[in-house]
Design a protein around this nucleic acid. Structure first.
Lengths: 106, 106
DNA sequence: CGGTATCCCTGGGGATACTG
DNA sequence: CAGTATCCCCAGGGATACCG
């Protein structure tokens, strides 16, 4: 890691996944390996530049791995590392809470 | 709610707690009622304006309640609603994951 | 003490064009 | 297809001053 980790674990988690698209990337990759184009399409409104930037940071933080296939046209796949996948409880909790909130706020 | 909720529950949760300081506000209020000044001090670097803005949004979203005591000097206390407190599993998951990540990244 | 009211500024993010 | 490379923008956030 480049930056110092905060003492508070919540802040640590926050600093690693609080960028605009990271949680949605995690949501998608929890399902399994995805190609760049798949992620871009699934996330919706993100630009290529920013999606790439977020992915690179997550790779640097050890949350996912990037695999380039030497083909033409190129194929790049992203897969969660164990560390990344271990965020599943966080995502699950968000899913459950979000579902409940939706049901109360038609 | 003013805005439309996204179909994806994760996005719903995200849109409600992804502002810069909201998760830290939740972290503090999980411990119990807090005064404005206590929150400001505990969170650290946030400015008054932004802290107020975040708190007002969370109030509008039904995550916390604001109680003003008609005293001089004024006292304002913030308390989680049931809905807000029901985010505890999310915070707990973040705490646990952050702790683990810290231990691996000295 | 817990706010508004202003002004200012940064950088995360978007749009477009180009490339291996 | 999956990127860089540029340029641009604005909204979230900071600093300061003042108020009830």
């Amino acid at each position: 890691m480049a930056k110092e980790l905060p003492a508070c674990p919540v802040e640590t988690t926050l600093m690693l996944i609080s960028d605009r698209w990271k949680v949605l990337i995690l949501r998608d990759l929890m399902e399994g390996t995805r190609r760049f184009g798949q992620l871009k399409k699934s996330i919706g409104t993100v630009s290529q530049k920013v999606l790439t930037a977020n992915l690179r940071e997550m790779e640097a933080d050890g949350l996912l791995s990037r695999r380039v296939y030497p083909e033409v046209p190129p194929r790049v796949e992203y897969t969660l590392t164990e560390t990344g996948y271990s965020l599943k409880p966080v995502l699950d909790a968000m899913t459950e809470w979000g579902t409940g909130y939706q049901s109360k706020h038609v």
